[in-house]
């Protein structure tokens, strides 16, 4: 199979395929967000490609890039036994305009996956019939898998008991402090604009 998938994609969509690579043997194509559904339909219906199984859909946040959020779709073809990873990028610095066409009419299995991407990364899918939060509760604000969401920021549904109510101390030592037990390389994420300003970039 090797580069069959990528070649066919490039032949068919030309400049809408922004970038391709085959790192570690995983064929990857980055396509334009506006052609997202068209690409999906092509991948499913082309007899030589026949990607009939939606494996995974997820969002990755790159605050320093524009467009900011990358939506990654993994597909598998049971008949041809090959895989492809299709990516697209949406959203500006503040994650405005994170919108994509829903693929639910192409593969019904992406239903919850799209809800999850919406919940975790905040990408809205046009045409999804039931785009609600799935892992978190409706009252939750923000999207935790964006890099600028602080990992420890909780939004409790019910107020915690106070020590006066409990009559016993409730404070505990956190398992690790912000810098303790963690790698040196980690940095606190703010949004991309602030970071670029800090470093004096435009």
């Amino acid at each position: 199979m090797s580069d069959l998938v990528l070649r066919k994609l490039k032949d068919r969509f030309g400049s809408a395929v922004l970038e391709t690579h085959s790192m570690c043997g995983d064929e990857t194509a980055i396509v334009e967000a506006s052609r997202w559904k068209e690409v999906a339909l092509f991948l499913r219906d082309d007899a030589e490609l026949a990607f009939n199984m939606p494996i995974d859909l997820c969002g990755v946040d790159y605050p320093e890039r524009l467009p900011r959020i990358e939506v990654v779709l993994h597909l598998y073809s049971l008949a041809r036994r090959h895989r492809v990873r299709v990516k697209t990028r949406v959203g500006d610095e503040e994650c405005n305009g994170c919108e994509l066409d829903s693929l639910i009419s192409v593969w019904p299995g992406v239903d919850w996956l799209e809800r999850e991407v919406f919940d975790m990364s905040g990408v809205r899918f046009r045409g999804h019939p039931d785009l609600r939060r799935i892992l978190l509760y409706p009252e939750f604000e923000g999207h935790p898998l964006r890099k600028d969401y602080p990992a420890q920021k909780t939004q409790p549904l019910i107020p915690y008991r106070t020590e006066a109510e409990a009559g016993v101390p409730l404070e505990k030592l956190a398992p690790f402090g912000p810098d303790e037990g963690m790698s040196f390389g980690r940095e606190v994420w703010t949004n991309g604009k602030a970071r670029r300003e800090n470093r004096g970039e435009q």
Partner: peptide, 28 residues
């Protein structure tokens, strides 16, 4: 199929670890 989609930025910390849990889609 238990899948892991990893993104590395070359440092000692994963940039993104995505698990593809098999029973997520089945429960779907």
């Amino acid at each position: 199929e238990l899948g892991f989609y990893l993104v590395s930025d070359g440092s000692g910390t994963p940039y993104r670890v995505r698990i593809r849990p098999p029973c997520f889609q089945i429960t779907n």
